[in-house]
Amino acid sequence: MIGYNRKAIRVGKLEGCGSSLPAGKVGGDFFEFFVHNNKNVVAAIGDVMGKGFPAACLMKTIHTMLCECVNITPHPLEVVRRLNKIGGDELRRRGAFVTLCIIYCDGETGRLSCVNAGHHPPIIVSNGEVKVVRCRGVALGLLEDYLGTGEEEIYLSPGDMVVMYTDGLVEAFGPGEKRYGLERLKKIVHQQPDADAAKMKRCILSDLKNFTRGYSQRDDITLLVLRVLKKAGEGCGD
């Protein structure tokens, strides 16, 4: 029923793509797309505490658990609660935590459900307006039971987009120790009203590259874009 290990997706009225750029040889960031009922998409993005090989190993473990949880039920709040239960002991044993944001998008109705566990909330681009999702929650592994504001629901229209990212993106360093920042990300997203998911991803990464040119980055950078197609069969740019 649910497929995974996808770095780009196009199913029914939805398309998505993502990229992960580790600061070193390997990193602790991850993202994933899952298809549900051949028309709906679950997208998840996460960041494991720490750096390098230890974080990458823990990321693999959590990623596997995430896939198992989504296969049981793709309901975002259930996924987060279950993942915090089955992964929490391992995380606490290692003194670590994972931030995770997960969305479920119904390809027919455009209904988007979002749950957040200690992660930067997604940006929604809807009818030319840029909004930040409000839902919040405690990162996985910090408490025995997941604690958060619950599931936030948003209805997307054709052409609307969701941009999910890890802290490495908005905290990327540029000239004068300035950070890339949420406002710059919102601005570049706003400037691409007609972009498809792949073009939006390229524009953000290109702007980030311009900003950080010559400055080495200390954190992994991961970005995921999900978009509702304007019409079925619309061309895809990636």
Partner: peptide, 8 residues
């Protein structure tokens, strides 16, 4: 705040 530090 985003991570949930203060809630913990």
């Amino acid at each position: 705040e985003i991570i949930g530090y203060f809630q913990v």
